[in-house]
Design a protein around this nucleic acid. Structure first.
Lengths: 134, 134, 134, 134
DNA sequence: GTGGTCTAGACCACG
DNA sequence: GTGGTCTAGACCACC
């Protein structure tokens, strides 16, 4: 299911968070769908259950999944009122990254392509946004 | 010169790397300009000299500065042929971040603004890109 | 009758306990009134009968309901001499919560409103307290 | 320093969070003051370092402390713009608790005393709130 | 020295 | 069987 790099500087639980977040954002995991149980993922990835648990907990804190004791972990529905604070943080990060990329040769066409691809991936969540980019 | 946030979860040396990188990208520090010495920065920022040293070493590894023993650290000239591999990596990161931001409500106008702002900052390094974004 | 949130981190049986307790406190369920049977509630809420049973047992332990074998569960009469110990515990909790809320910006007007609303809900059980709060 | 109840239903790390939060709210621990190190608290309380770590992490997530790798954990300054969402949640909890307390005999004088005491503890954070309660 | 991550394995609470 | 908590002890990153 996933590919983890245990030698990476990035903690395993963070890698997990990112991978699962991606699956949720790209609608591969759908709202209210059940995630693999802590123990199952643990044995599949040969990673300690605690590490999986921690990743799930982080995802819950960030609002991407919810967990029911004795039942399992499930994908959360999208919030209709998106978190403004989080979005603002993301924008700051994006700007920094874009500036660095421009320095390395990124063009406006590149960013157009990236946005378009990302938008396709998310399967048009924001319907008012399906128009042409330009 | 800089403003460091000791409370941030991001290591101080990484903050330094990012800040200096930004100054270089935005042409505030120009090619072959000398950077402040480790000791000076260390006392100015009340930061351990080791931490400064580490930041400079990291910047050197990434190709943003070069150091001359006994003289100091200097801003590297822009590579006209930017590292394609790095740009590719950046694009991957960007795409991931953009997808997440769209999930949280980012619109095409938002990304337009971000690109525009970032482009202004870099002071039109890439002349083929000074036209209007739209 | 109730609205349960299966996604909540609070166990379902506890949610049930709180809801029913609220109905009793607010006199919607009157003393000696019969509660819905375990089976009925179970099928209505599509919740495991064990869970309902557990909630009722908990309510009985706390003195809010009593059960008669073969007949059902019933709302207990109000104790005119309320449990002083419980009240003392509640006060401790309240004080802690109020302090935290003040730290986050709670004003005396806020607490006035809260008390007033809570008082309205209880429909003036304690007659010496029906006057204006201020 | 603290007294923990290992037999309690409430997790140890949560007990720790509550205790430390209380010390911060009541200004016994002052902003930027260093908390005992994970290892020290761990041995003092004969609790596993991981459990302490988890409590500190939770406090950081809630904004009560901040941690610097290699340095320690420190009390965070109060946010000038308090978290409205958190306050709203607290109010809901408060209302429920107050209603229950009224049911058990709480009077408006009682709540007055509680608010007053809590306000004293917090050492008058909100200066516009030092007037008489009534 | 400090915090941060991870494993191995245990026990409890919940449904 | 599920998630949640905890211990024992290890290793790494940072300053």
């Amino acid at each position: 299911m996933f590919q983890l790099d245990v030698r990476s500087r990035k903690p395993i639980y963070e890698q997990l968070v990112d991978k699962i977040k991606e699956l949720i954002i790209n609608r591969i995991l759908k709202p209210d769908e059940q995630l693999p149980s802590v123990r199952m993922l643990s044995s599949q990835l040969t990673v300690n259950p605690n590490t999986i648990q921690r990743a799930y907990r982080e995802l819950e804190n960030q609002g991407y999944i919810y967990s029911i004791k004795g039942k399992g972990n499930f994908v959360a529905a999208i919030e209709l009122k998106p978190n403004e604070q989080k979005l603002a943080e993301l924008k700051t990060d994006l700007k920094r990254l874009i500036a660095e990329a421009i320095y390395l040769g990124l063009t406006k066409d590149d960013i157009y392509v990236l946005f378009h691809e990302a938008h396709q991936q998310t399967k048009g969540i924001n319907s008012d946004d399906t128009g042409s980019f330009r």
